[in-house]
Design a protein around this nucleic acid. Structure first.
Ligand SMILES: [Mn+2]
Ligand SMILES: [Mn+2]
Ligand SMILES: [Zn+2]
Ligand SMILES: [Zn+2]
Lengths: 137, 137
DNA sequence: TCCTAATTAATAATTTTTATTTGTAATAAT
DNA sequence: ATTATTACAAATAAAAATTATTAATTAGGA
């Protein structure tokens, strides 16, 4: 558990409960995880944890921008700790999501958008679908 | 209803039923639509249409690659007729999705991926989130 | 240490999606 | 054209996913 995250929680008046900390730990250790994956792993440490608790926490942490949703074609959304801009490799077979560097080219797309279209740019999401090395053999 | 679409249906042994044609018409006219939007509009022409019929058709048309899913953060997935590669402007307020040209830069990302990472590239999805002109005033 | 608001587990309720069944209709075969 | 075949639709039920409610617990501040 990062100290930074604890401070984030405090600054948003979110209590650092064991359940919440565990949820964040699970997400951090898995990188990207959906509701069920988080619940399954977190339950090991907190056997009484309710699935509704996972839902409520995910919602709260998304609202505070501590977590980020990664909506996927054909899979349930995954969640990740908010971090610097990056892109995703998404395996169509197993749903595994891998972070990759966001190419330099993409970084200036945002500038174009606001001028080319009458659109108030906020953030950009690049997901690259294919088959991961594990699944392709 | 495009003749091309009718041929597509036939080639995949999907019957060109009035309901299915109407679903495709609705998606085409709206550009991007989620299950409920499709159902609401389609019901006007076919008052007895069941929501389950929309689900079944969307699934079938996705499998045949006639439709494409657009998974969105914070909104239900939308569906569109498969078309040439393009990017999306997504309004965080109202969920409206607008097609935009996929910048030239992005077109060659695919080449890098397969070599840089051990990943069998299939397709790429670029969603740009922000606030549309309608919602920002 | 005490207080209070936030949080949790448990449970119920709601919403979303999928499955089943049975009659119907689109297409192919005759 | 008529019939046969099979996919399909509507209706309904079932299952899965998400959210709401409640009462007890607890984290964090006074
Ligand atoms: Mn990521
Ligand atoms: Mn589109
Ligand atoms: Zn894989
Ligand atoms: Zn909007």
């Amino acid at each position: 558990m990062q100290n930074r995250t604890l401070e984030l929680l405090k600054s948003y008046h979110l209590k650092a409960t064991p359940q919440r900390i565990e949820i964040l730990n699970v997400i951090e250790s898995l990188g990207h995880a959906n509701i069920d994956e988080i619940y399954e792993v977190a339950k090991k440490k907190h056997s009484t944890m309710s699935l509704a608790t996972v839902y409520k926490n995910i919602t709260a942490l998304l609202e505070k921008n501590i977590l980020n949703e990664v909506a996927l074609n054909n899979f349930k959304s995954k969640y990740e700790i908010v971090k610097d801009r990056h892109a995703h490799l998404v395996c169509k077979e197993c749903g595994y999501v891998q972070d990759i560097e966001l190419n330099q080219e993409i970084k200036h797309i945002s500038k174009d958008i606001s001028s080319d279209y009458n659109f108030n740019f906020e953030n950009l999401e690049l997901n690259i679908y294919g088959v991961c090395s594990k699944c392709s053999k």
